[in-house]
């Protein structure tokens, strides 16, 4: 290991910037994932496939359609909401009616995920898609000259968008009437129904919001890595699970904190640990397993009643 790395403040700040933007992505992705778990108590294992399709939707609108960045973001989030709506109607709702157990919903979402990924493979092939430079100027900004800290336009966009989404979701859940209804359904579907809440309607809104978040994460990851393939969901799926476990299943603030923790840990391991880039894929699993061993409710875990 190069010890001089520790004395280099520019390198440190650079990794902080990279780690925070990476963590912001994990956070946005995991918020949607944990929201569905918090409300319905089921793992939506098609969340990663939704994420991937949204990256392609944004790509098609911007790179093929030639529309500007805001249109691409909107298209990706819209696509996410639509796919999530389809999942709710086709994969989850039929099982809720039958009164089947949680396992069935998970299995159904696994099937849906496989179909979505296979359709993407059939439609787009295995070759990598990249954005043209006109979408987002790839030239980074430098703070403190060329040897200083580098921050790309994509990273700035990610940090800004994720703050907006995190604060927005928080306000939506806490302050709006629909947010209150979502929390009521999360606490008890039966009680919410007795109180006159349209439970299925609330669940549809939950899926729309979660899908839009997957969409935002998808297009932002695509802009950051500029590497759009049907298999791109695999890499975030495991990380999303680790983040959700880290923050406590169903805990939205926990997902945000967990996202930043994983983003920073990964970035710093790659930067400072010998052979760090080889083990970066294993970090998420290690965190996941260790949390399950020592603190299975996550670092911010709470009971079901006040979740979501």
């Amino acid at each position: 290991m190069d010890l001089s790395l520790f004395a280099n403040p520019v390198f440190l700040v650079q990794n902080l910037v990279d780690g925070l933007s990476r963590g912001a992505l994990y956070g946005v992705y995991a918020m949607g994932f944990t929201l569905i778990f918090g409300v319905l108590d089921i793992l939506n294992l098609a969340h990663a496939a939704t994420f991937m399709w949204c990256a392609f939707a944004g790509y098609l609108v911007m790179a093929v359609g030639g529309l500007p960045l805001p249109a691409g973001l909107a298209a990706a989030m819209l696509a996410g909401a639509l796919i999530a709506l389809l999942l709710e109607l086709l994969a989850f709702r039929p099982l809720r009616r039958e009164g089947a157990d949680k396992l069935s919903s998970m299995i159904s979402s696994i099937g849906a995920s496989l179909i979505l990924v296979s359709l993407a493979e059939a439609a787009f092939g295995a070759q990598t898609r990249r954005f043209p430079n006109s979408v987002l100027d790839p030239k980074p900004f430098y703070i403190g000259g060329f040897s200083g800290v580098r921050i790309s336009r994509a990273q700035i966009l990610i940090l800004a968008a994720s703050v907006v989404l995190m604060v927005g979701l928080g306000l939506f859940i806490r302050r709006t009437k629909m947010g209150k209804a979502i929390r009521a359904v999360a606490a008890s579907q039966k009680a919410a129904r007795l109180l006159g809440i349209d439970v299925n309607g609330v669940i549809v809104v939950t899926f729309l919001v979660a899908g839009a978040l997957a969409g935002a994460a998808g297009i932002l990851v695509a802009l950051l890595t500029n590497n759009i393939v049907p298999g791109m969901g695999n890499q975030i799926e495991l990380r999303g699970l680790a983040v959700v476990i880290l923050g406590g299943m169903g805990n939205i603030e926990g997902a945000v904190v967990g996202g930043f923790v994983l983003g920073l840990v990964e970035t710093f391991t790659i930067a400072y640990a010998p052979g760090g880039s080889d083990i970066k894929d294993a970090i998420a699993f290690l965190i996941l397993f260790i949390i399950l061993l020592v603190k299975p409710n996550g670092i911010m875990g709470r009971g079901k009643a006040d979740r979501a």
Binding site: A91, P94, L95, A100, S108, A112, S113, L114, I115, S118
Partner: peptide, 10 residues
């Protein structure tokens, strides 16, 4: 296989 999973479970 994906369809079989979903259809069977539902």
């Amino acid at each position: 296989n994906g369809l079989a999973l979903m259809l069977a479970i539902i």
